[in-house]
Amino acid sequence: MKLLIVDDHAVVRSGLASLLDGKHGIAVVGEAGEGDEGIAKALELRPDVVLMDLSMPHGKDGLTATAELKKLAPEIAVLILTMHDDEEYLFRSIQAGASGYILKNAPHEELVSAIRSVAAGHAYLYPTATKRLMSEYLERLSGGGQPSDAYDTLSDREKEILSLTAKGYSNKEIAELLTISVKTVETHKSHVMEKLGLKTRPELVKYAAQKGLLQFE
């Protein structure tokens, strides 16, 4: 199985390559540090599986890259490898076309199993994720508990931070992208939560999805 690793951290990429290359029938054919580079290398190298990180602040994020790659090369399986143990990111990853979703703290054997599974054309979700995804889907169908719409009260900067937060960027990553301090990001985020009547990050992500802020081009 040919594997392409897409992650913005060089140490993570090299670690995964050392762990997987030449073992378990896996050949690591390339690495990329952001989404656009990942798409280009996938189209050039034609791997069986792309191991894709979600949050990559310096370039195209993993969700957008996954959606674009699946349009260009639907035969290439994408396995999301992320630190986000969150049903909303799981839901969005599958919606983007990913064949699997696994956490970065998963055991080595589970990662290998996930790669082999998606390479064979099957879906793979980390343990308990199927139940959580179904619960999220049923909640969406019911339409219950959604916050009132106060989107128009947000400033342009607040809308920008809302979108980046929903896509999985950390406060530090947002600060670097927007060239502002982490404290300023935290203040804007607090105002966003207050104006929208939100209390948790999953609620914020759901709201952003409703507003179309996570839609793929």
Rank of each mutant, 00 (worst) to 15 (best):
Y207T: 10
T82K: 08
L177M: 15
T153A: 11
G144N: 08
L72R: 15
H122P: 01
N171E: 14
K199E: 13
L213M: 04
N105P: 00
L214K: 04
M52S: 00
E68R: 01
L63W: 01
V185A: 02
Y124P: 02
L133I: 11
F91Q: 05
S135Q: 04
L133D: 05
P202F: 10
K71A: 14
T179F: 12
S142C: 09
R201D: 12
G15T: 03
L63P: 00
E37D: 07
Q210F: 08
E44N: 09
G59I: 12
N171Y: 11
V185E: 03
S135T: 14
T82N: 10
M56R: 11
L19P: 04
L45Q: 07
S135G: 11
H191P: 06
D36G: 07
R132Y: 02
S135H: 07
M56A: 14
Y101D: 03
L63G: 00
T200R: 13
G197A: 01
I39C: 06
V112G: 00
E31K: 10
L3E: 02
L214Y: 08
M134A: 11
A123D: 06
L19E: 05
D48F: 06
F216M: 15
E160S: 13
L177T: 15
I80Q: 10
E173Q: 15
K131T: 13
R92K: 11
L154Q: 01
L213F: 12
M1D: 00
H58F: 06
F91R: 15
Y101A: 01
T128M: 13
H9P: 02
K131Y: 10
P147G: 13
S170Q: 06
R92D: 03
S142T: 12
A96G: 01
A10F: 05
L16H: 07
D61E: 09
L79D: 02
Y169S: 00
Y151I: 14
V205A: 13
G59W: 07
K189D: 07
Q210E: 12
E110N: 03
A10M: 03
E109S: 09
L3H: 04
D86K: 04
M83G: 05
G22K: 08
G35A: 05
G143H: 12
D152W: 03
A114Y: 06
S14N: 09
I115A: 01
D156C: 04
G144V: 12
E37Y: 04
I174Q: 15
P107H: 08
T64E: 07
G30T: 02
L213R: 07
L196F: 09
V78F: 00
V49S: 09
L111E: 01
L198D: 07
R201T: 13
V205R: 07
G25R: 07
L81C: 05
A98G: 04
S163A: 15
T153Q: 14
Y151K: 03
A166C: 03
